[in-house]
Nucleic acid binder design. Structure first.
Lengths: 206, 206, 206, 206
DNA sequence: CATGAATGAGGGTTCATTCAT
DNA sequence: AATGAATGAACCCTCATTCAT
């Protein structure tokens, strides 16, 4: 009973926070950090400007929180896939498919993901980079170690596992990017087998 | 002849324009569109602010001109490589190496390239996209047609040539991105053989 | 009897009001009207912000009430000293000493007193002035009338009693100000004889 | 010739700066630092808001510049009077009269002077205090040394010269304050002889 | 022409005040 | 009755753009 009562306010607050973040996500992903005003976010979230500042110290903080939250969420999912163990081949297959499902859910997130990780991020001075980049490095290292296991088991050729990971990322991102640019024409999910195939076997005949 | 036709004034003006664009390139690539002021560009180019407006209607226009100029320059080089004709295999090899040389010359351009093409570009409202995207589509189509020729000649497996092109772009960009992020640790040029290898043969053993 | 009449509720309310005023006094005197927020006062007084508005219509009103209360308190003490009657000389002596004791008790009040009466008060738009000024005028007039009696009795020279009062105020305030600025170095109370002396005899030798 | 040309721009700038300061002085002295907005100052000075920021880094800076400029101006005049040398008696007479003329010229300055030096100044965080207070201390010390000379020459009684200076300041300020409050009823200049008289001889008969 | 001082719209942020709980 | 979350007007300040010199 007590437990049910106490969290009510907390839950309410969390919900509000999420509503603000959702509004911000949509706007930022559509127009970019610098082309979105706090007033705009407030209006979209249907709060007063002042309310935003109850949840976030300032605009930068709001943006950081948004990015970090999404980063952690996606990071968690992908890391768990990579951590399952088992056949390197199977893990990579799972990874490609999971990435498809994960980003396939939200164009907005994908856009910010690209803005922040591929395009040099000029949005905020510093600090976000650091944390997100750390997560990404951690992920890339894990992916590399999975591939390394595959190399040791002779599943994969003797290629630097880190660069293999880089290549896999480049391949999957390229297709995600395609889809993001024109979701009507290009599907990422439909291309999962193709990606897998190209990554594993290359393009040469035979 | 053509050159002689341009009066001294015109040539002078072109030179000035280039100086402004060069200053802008450096600043934009370092700090991002929104964190660079016209005053800053003017100072770096050693002109008065007003002079910038003689050459460009406004800040957005200056940015567009810069991006378009670079896009055309790079586009021209890559298209000519793809147009040489000959063995699809050799053309792709040439393409990968040329891309390395091309972007390897200027980190600044590379950064803006990523900001504009990979990261969803939020710098300017719209319009730039259109023109640059058209150039890029043209380039991707040409690359695809080269690969298609390879498929027809059974050099490459029967994979949708457009997606093969997308994959090749993803692969090369991933390595360029690596290098751009940490030029000390990662070299794009040194990895050219690796990229070629992975693209052609994939990562599976045998 | 009177005290008994006030219901518990009333007494409770009065106590709360005083607590708010005490918190406000400390904060205002330390940081100035405009650098203190209602939230701050509420926190110091350990009430909710809304509660403050149960007792005072707005921030200005709270400030006015505080000033007026202190003004009345101090006014009462000084007026009673001036009303005691008797030798003008003795009354003035008493006045100087009483002022020392009175303001010596609270630096906070003294600071606000100066902010409000010497420094042109810019805290609130208007209105406070009126009431406080009236009290002050009343006090100055009474002081003048005491001095006038001294003039009539030939205790004092034939000087406009009002300006004599002004001079006495200036003299005592100057020393209070000294003390307020650096309580370690300057004591007002220790200088009471000096003040009396200078006021009565001036500074010339003989 | 050259000299005449160069300063033209400089002089123009100085004039603008003075116009801004004049507008600010009037507004600050009338309504206080916190009740005046930059927009208001700009409007009164007939400039755009941005122009204010060409001359002053921010609002605080503008206020500081204004206060310091006036402080230095008045400081200079009073110090020169105190530095003339000669009979301590005559110097003090001169000082009282000069102070009358000096402040008599501008009610606005006088109001800010009181706000800043008598009322505890809460306008700006810090720093101004320091500089102005230093000037004031310097002045008070000089005044004290003049009085000390008078004591040594037995012109004045054996009273701590610093406190004699404090007393003189209190006396003169009290009359200035009177005048400032109600310029119609009270004149400072007309009371110069009275002030001198009371300071020198006190109020006691004989 | 080239200049750069002047402009003022618009952004981020604060805080007195209100009102649903 | 007491609370404090929500409100939004108003502040300070920046910077793209213009235009008199």
């Amino acid at each position: 009973m007590e437990e049910e009562k106490l969290p009510r306010r907390e839950r309410e607050n969390l919900r509000r926070r999420q509503e603000i973040l959702a509004a911000a996500l949509e706007l930022f992903s559509e127009k970019g950090y610098h082309n979105v005003s706090m007033r705009e976010i407030a209006e979209k979230a249907e709060f007063a400007v002042g309310t935003l500042y109850k949840f976030f110290r300032n605009k930068e903080d709001l943006y950081k929180a948004l990015m970090l939250e999404k980063a952690k969420e996606y990071h968690g999912v992908l890391m768990s896939v990579l951590g399952k163990g088992g056949d390197a081949f199977a893990v990579v297959e799972d990874f490609i498919a999971t990435k498809a499902r994960l980003f396939g859910k939200s164009l907005s997130v994908l856009r910010l993901y690209f803005a922040e990780t591929r395009g040099a991020s000029f949005n905020i001075k510093a600090g976000l980079d650091r944390e997100i980049r750390k997560l990404y490095d951690e992920f890339l290292t894990r992916l590399a170690s999975v591939l390394e296991a595959g190399v040791r088991k002779k599943t994969f050729r003797r290629i630097d596992p880190y660069y293999m990971a880089v290549a896999l990322e480049g391949l999957t991102n390229a297709f995600l990017f395609c889809w993001q640019e024109d979701p009507e024409r290009h599907s990422y999910e439909a291309n999962v087998p193709l990606i897998r195939d190209m990554f594993f076997k290359g393009v040469l005949a035979e």
